[in-house]
Design a protein around this nucleic acid. Sequence first.
RNA 1: GGCGCCGUCGCCAAGUGGUAAGGCAGAGGUCUGCAAAACCUCCAUCCCCGGUUCAAAUCCGGGCGGCGCCUCCA
Length: 470
Amino acid sequence: MRLYNTLTRQVEPFAPVRNNTVRMYTCGLTVYARGHIGNFRTFVGVDVLRRALKYVGGFQMHHVMNFTDVDDKTITGAEKAGLPLREYTDQYIQAFREDALALGIEPVEDTPRATDPENLQAMADMIKQLGEHGHTYQTDGSIYFKIATLPTYGKLARLDHEGIQAGARVDSDEYDKENARDFVLWKATKPGEPTWDVGCGPGRPGWHIECSAMALRLLGESPIDIHTGGVDLVFPHHENEIAQSEGATGKEFSKFWFHIEHLLVDNQKMSKSVGNVYTVQDVLDRGFRLSALRYILLSAYYRKQLNFTWVGLEQAEESLRRITDFLGRVGGLSGGVAHVEVATRVAEAVQRFDAALADDLNTAAGLGELFDLIRALNIAMDARQVGEADAPGIQAAFDHFDQVLGVLSLRHAEEATPPIPQAEIDAGIEARQDARRRRDFAEADRIRQELLDKGVILEDGPKGTRWKRR
RNA sequence: GGCGCCGUCGCCAAGUGGUAAGGCAGAGGUCUGCAAAACCUCCAUCCCCGGUUCAAAUCCGGGCGGCGCCUCCA
């Protein structure tokens, strides 16, 4: 398996440093609001990485994804809502879990929260360690990381430090720093803010320290194998995580840095001021299924910006329909022996699919292989060169594709939920069959239209009539 | 201002030196009570201009256009 590494700006062969288990950390959501579809591009992208490592690479996973449940936004939000911080962030964590599930994102092994006592303790320990190594200083009860003490600072982002220093838009925090590039590890208590005293003086953690501390606490000794997140985290977040972790341990923090490009809406980054922020719920409200959203996210290379449009969602619906229709056709095969040619063609497709995914997660090329196989098998089925005995092998191949893509099973679950009671559909199909036998086609068409209006499409095939969701 | 990415058919999107995958949409046909689905056929020379090469969408230079990062941010 080969992956692009932001640290080296190159595609490199990947293997876990320790044994067969990949130790991976993902910077999760800051839970001050419901996650938007841009957030979920990242999380679906990470999910595909995770699945590819498991099902193509054959590795085990120890995957940590955190929730940032304390920062300026969560504190302000909780205050506005009149809720305790923990209670306020709970609701968005819950919402994230629901959205993630609905998008077919596999649960990860650990989902720590910054304010869990053991994590705050780990942060304090790391800050102490940094102090012992001479990387910190204090001002007014806050503790800062002194970048000048770490010569390798900037190796990930490769930014022009002089430029940062001279820039007018540097951190406008009220906290005093010796140097604009320095960043805060622990913020001294301010009136009305939540505060913890775990050995760094009363206060709350800076943003970056939580990820360093939780990653090493849960994944063990560095280097970990992969650290992931959205591109916008490269600087300063990930750069600072490296500074903290490597400053504290003296060892490399992570072998691979994996970043997912932004989802754009209307060709722009989503932002509240532009008014182009959509949530998972918004997609549902427009009558789309989340399998279509996941499909869109899968249809482009993760390192390229992806422009989200509603037209694109419609196209994704249709593409997905082609796959599920094909699978339905395979499921309806009857009679006939197994064909060697079919098995060979299927094996070829699986092999190519895996190769595409192993090549830095080329899901678009993988989908291309999948559709090529569909065409080939459709032609073969028309020529009656595919038998019922071939079906399990074909099914197994698509199950494999979907272990990585995670979109067909999602679609299946959606399809299985009828828009109207199953009995009503069955009754309609039955009544229509009667009408057709009587050659009362007007009545047959009326019934079909009636069901269509209720969101059920009927299709007549050799094995009778089947239905699917509109 | 600094750094970086991108520009491939109407739309989406692979391909990064050997003569343009795939999906959606569209046109014609086969099949069907009619549909739907499926199948067949058709549908691009890769933003522009130079250069390197036997050979470039793919490499180099210069334009034009879009986006992102440099500040909280997926």
